[in-house]
């Protein structure tokens, strides 16, 4: 490999985000958790938040947030991250607080916590990774599992008669008065990655300016548990998932409610 800075191409255009720890991650090949970690790290760097950030890691593939994002992190029981984050933010209002949660964590066991953190307008940000399955535990049905999608607990495909419908969290939370920002993005194309970064920036700006609760839902692949090659998994996101889970901004408060 030629040493960087060689004559001709010496201006670094893309380097690792400072807040992304320089280690190999445990994520499966092509898993979008890695992409989303990079976006979060880039946005932390952008607003120089690293030394005042406290992350809340949930239970699931993303629990190792503290190995990958170079900030203080507290680990939360499964689904409770928005409550733990509330406890951190209420005790340290000057700190930047975010949670990083999967769909099993946020949309199943943690629905009450995220709904009430949003409804209280807690001034914190939620990064919500929706890959329509429980990744860490081996691919069981999640609340966002698509109808007809086979998982280890819907071996014949999810059937609404017995398993209900995939839940759209970004829209659901956008209906709460306390929610300042709710959007759904994806990272399956370079253009989507750029737009996703804008949404996370927006969410972080909301918190920095005290506007209240912000959430960015990411449609994400889980190649291993979907039994797909990473590139095919991205097609699934671009196809049926984006149809059922439309991308966009569902709520964006213009200015904070003032007493």
């Amino acid at each position: 490999m030629s040493a960087p800075g060689k004559v001709g191409f010496s201006k670094a255009v893309y380097t690792r985000p400072r807040s992304l720890v320089d280690v190999k991650s445990h994520f499966c090949p092509g898993c979008h958790h890695g992409t989303i970690h990079k976006i979060v790290a880039e946005c932390i760097d952008r607003y120089d938040l690293r030394e005042k950030t406290i992350g809340v890691a949930c239970v699931g593939c993303s629990v190792f947030l503290y190995d990958y994002i170079d900030v203080d992190v507290v680990e939360s029981p499964h689904g409770r991250a928005p409550a733990v984050a509330t406890g951190v933010k209420r005790a340290q209002p000057d700190k930047f607080v975010f949670t990083y949660q999967g769909d099993g964590d946020l949309a199943a066991i943690g629905t009450s916590e995220v709904i009430h953190a949003a409804n209280r307008g807690e001034n914190l940000s939620v990064i919500f990774v929706n890959n329509t399955t429980y990744g860490m535990t081996g691919g069981q049905m999640a609340p966002t599992t698509m109808l007809g999608q086979k998982t280890s607990t819907t071996p014949y495909g999810r059937d609404f008669r017995s398993d209900g419908y995939p839940i759209r969290m970004a829209e659901l939370l956008s209906g709460l008065e306390g929610t300042a920002y709710s959007a759904r993005v994806a990272v399956s194309t370079p253009a989507q990655i750029r737009k996703a970064k804008e949404s996370v920036r927006k969410a972080f700006e909301m918190q920095i300016s005290g506007m209240g609760f912000s959430i960015v839902e990411f449609l994400s692949t889980c190649p291993t548990n979907w039994g797909m090659k990473p590139l095919d998994a991205q097609k699934r996101v671009l196809g049926e998932m984006s149809e059922y889970f439309p991308l966009g901004v569902f709520k964006e408060r213009k200015q904070a409610d003032v007493a």
């Binding site: 800075g5 010496s10 893309y14 690792r16 750029r194």
Partner: peptide, 19 residues
């Protein structure tokens, strides 16, 4: 072209880009 799209895409931040 040094556009860095590859680096943005890589989930494991394996790619560095110069111009």
């Amino acid at each position: 072209t040094g556009c860095a799209i590859c680096a943005e895409t890589c989930p494991d931040a394996c790619i560095l880009v110069w111009r």
